[in-house]
């Protein structure tokens, strides 16, 4: 059963990834990105990480893709018409070859190890369990991330601050 789910979601995620790459108009690639993120969310569910799946959907699929669409719309999609490296075919093929090589290397490294199948505990990925660990073992990075978000807010405001009355967009946390 899990295999079937894995295949379905995996394929859709790959389609999403390809879509981001191929599509002409950035709006399409944004939507494909959304597909990719949602599929990854489901994969997390299959992997037993409920808490992450929920936060993935909210944070990524919800906030980040929306922000992308927001900016694309704001800029006006005509000026943002995409130019998929017209005329620079050499660099395109070069990068694809490089990418495939990279994949072979990493894929082999990753795949080579035979992982013992591990059965996760039932409440493995629940919010309560993850929360417990978050606040006990990982307190320091948690605080650091709060500083980081503060920096992001200041930065966004500074940059968006208006000579031209750009809409000051508060980043979604």
């Amino acid at each position: 059963m899990e295999l079937v789910l894995f295949i379905v979601f995996g394929l859709l995620a790959l389609i999403g990834a390809f879509g981001v790459l191929i599509s002409q108009k950035p709006v399409h690639s944004a939507l494909f990105l959304l597909l990719n993120f949602v599929m990854l969310g489901f994969l997390y569910l299959v992997l037993g990480a409920q808490f992450l799946a929920a936060s993935q959907l909210i944070v990524y699929a919800g906030a980040i893709v929306v922000l992308f669409l927001f900016v694309i719309m704001l800029i006006g999609s005509d000026t943002v018409g995409d130019f998929v490296a017209k005329g620079r075919t050499l660099s395109r093929y070069l990068s694809i070859i490089l990418g495939v090589l990279f994949l072979a290397g990493v894929g082999y490294a990753v795949g080579a190890r035979a992982f013992p199948p591990a059965a996760g505990a039932p409440d493995f990925g629940t919010t309560e369990a993850a929360g417990k660990v978050l606040f006990t073992q990982f307190l320091v990075p948690f605080e650091l991330v709060s500083i980081l978000l503060l920096v992001a807010m200041i930065g966004a405001i500074v940059l968006a601050h208006g000579v031209w009355p750009a809409p000051s967009r508060r980043p979604r946390e």
Partner: peptide, 13 residues
């Protein structure tokens, strides 16, 4: 990683 991000984000801005 997180410290690296704090550093880089403030430098980007």
């Amino acid at each position: 990683f997180v410290a690296l991000e704090i550093l880089s984000l403030s430098l980007y801005v």
